[in-house]
Amino acid sequence: KKIKIKIKVYNPETKEVLELEIEVSEEEAEELAKKLAEELEKKGYKIEEVEI
C-alpha cells in the first residue's frame, strides 16, 4: 500500500513557503517524514505541519 506524505515548510528568513508531496510504502512513510523534517530544520526551515 502506498502512503502520500505532504509537508508544508516555512522559512522565516525568506518568508518562503514550500509544499512537498511524495508517495512511499507504509513502512517507509514515518521514517522518511521524520528524516525530511530533521533535514529541513537543519537548513533553517520551521516545520509547520507533517501529514501522513
Results as ranks from 00 to 15, higher is better:
residue 7 I to H: 00
residue 16 E to V: 10
residue 5 I to K: 00
residue 52 I to G: 02
residue 46 K to R: 02
residue 16 E to Y: 08
residue 11 N to C: 15
residue 4 K to P: 01
residue 26 E to D: 06
residue 4 K to Q: 07
residue 34 K to I: 03
residue 29 A to D: 01
residue 43 K to M: 15
residue 50 V to T: 07
residue 48 E to D: 04
residue 7 I to E: 00
residue 6 K to A: 03
residue 28 E to P: 03
residue 23 E to H: 12
residue 5 I to L: 08
residue 14 T to Q: 03
residue 20 L to K: 04
residue 44 G to T: 00
residue 31 E to F: 15
residue 37 A to E: 02
residue 15 K to W: 10
residue 31 E to A: 10
residue 27 E to L: 04
residue 32 L to A: 10
residue 52 I to Q: 03
residue 29 A to Q: 04
residue 1 K to E: 07
residue 31 E to K: 12
residue 49 E to A: 12
residue 15 K to E: 06
residue 14 T to P: 01
residue 52 I to T: 03
residue 8 K to P: 00
residue 8 K to D: 01
residue 16 E to I: 09
residue 21 E to G: 07
residue 3 I to E: 03
residue 18 L to G: 06
residue 34 K to W: 03
residue 3 I to H: 11
residue 28 E to G: 10
residue 43 K to G: 06
residue 12 P to T: 08
residue 40 L to K: 00
residue 30 E to W: 05
residue 1 K to M: 08
residue 15 K to I: 08
residue 25 S to T: 09
residue 23 E to W: 09
residue 27 E to N: 03
residue 7 I to C: 03
residue 29 A to T: 02
residue 24 V to A: 07
residue 52 I to M: 07
residue 1 K to H: 13
residue 26 E to H: 09
residue 46 K to P: 01
residue 20 L to V: 13
residue 21 E to Q: 12
residue 14 T to I: 04
residue 40 L to W: 15
residue 5 I to N: 00
residue 24 V to T: 12
residue 18 L to Q: 03
residue 4 K to E: 03
residue 42 K to G: 11
residue 35 K to Q: 09
residue 25 S to P: 08
residue 39 E to R: 03
residue 26 E to K: 08
residue 6 K to L: 04
residue 50 V to F: 05
residue 11 N to W: 07
residue 13 E to T: 15
residue 3 I to D: 03
residue 28 E to H: 12
residue 20 L to M: 13
residue 13 E to N: 10
residue 46 K to I: 13
residue 25 S to H: 14
residue 40 L to N: 02
residue 12 P to N: 08
residue 46 K to V: 10
residue 9 V to T: 07
residue 7 I to L: 12
residue 38 E to S: 06
residue 6 K to Q: 05
residue 44 G to Q: 00
residue 45 Y to H: 03
residue 44 G to A: 01
residue 29 A to Y: 03
residue 35 K to I: 06
residue 36 L to Y: 13
residue 8 K to N: 03
residue 5 I to E: 00
residue 49 E to F: 13
residue 7 I to S: 00
residue 39 E to G: 02
residue 12 P to E: 10
residue 30 E to R: 06
residue 29 A to L: 01
residue 24 V to D: 04
residue 21 E to W: 13
residue 40 L to P: 00
residue 34 K to G: 04
residue 34 K to L: 04
residue 10 Y to D: 00
residue 45 Y to M: 04
residue 19 E to I: 15
residue 24 V to G: 15
residue 34 K to P: 02
residue 6 K to D: 01
residue 34 K to E: 06
residue 44 G to Y: 00
residue 15 K to L: 07
residue 8 K to H: 04
residue 48 E to P: 02
residue 22 I to M: 15
residue 26 E to R: 05
residue 42 K to H: 04
residue 28 E to S: 13
residue 45 Y to C: 13
residue 31 E to N: 06
residue 42 K to A: 03
residue 37 A to Q: 12
residue 30 E to N: 14
residue 43 K to S: 06
residue 35 K to L: 14
residue 3 I to W: 14
residue 4 K to V: 03
residue 48 E to W: 07
residue 1 K to I: 07
residue 43 K to V: 06
residue 1 K to T: 05
residue 30 E to Y: 10
residue 41 E to L: 07
residue 34 K to N: 05
residue 23 E to I: 05
residue 7 I to A: 02
residue 39 E to A: 13
residue 4 K to S: 11
residue 15 K to N: 13
residue 23 E to R: 12
residue 30 E to S: 12
residue 33 A to F: 07
residue 51 E to R: 08
residue 23 E to F: 14
residue 23 E to G: 06
residue 24 V to K: 01
residue 46 K to E: 08
residue 41 E to N: 10
residue 42 K to P: 00
residue 4 K to W: 11
residue 25 S to E: 15
residue 19 E to C: 14
residue 32 L to D: 04
residue 45 Y to K: 00
residue 37 A to P: 03
residue 33 A to S: 07
residue 45 Y to L: 06
residue 45 Y to V: 01
residue 49 E to K: 05
residue 32 L to R: 12
residue 45 Y to P: 00
residue 2 K to P: 10
residue 17 V to M: 11
residue 11 N to K: 14
residue 47 I to R: 01
residue 21 E to T: 11
residue 19 E to H: 04
residue 51 E to N: 10
residue 19 E to A: 09
residue 20 L to H: 15
residue 9 V to W: 11
residue 16 E to L: 13
residue 10 Y to W: 07
residue 44 G to V: 00
residue 47 I to Q: 01
residue 22 I to H: 07
residue 27 E to T: 05
residue 10 Y to S: 14
residue 3 I to A: 15
residue 37 A to N: 02
residue 11 N to P: 03
residue 8 K to T: 12
residue 16 E to R: 10
residue 28 E to N: 09
residue 29 A to K: 04
residue 51 E to T: 12
residue 38 E to H: 10
residue 49 E to N: 08
residue 27 E to S: 14
residue 11 N to L: 04
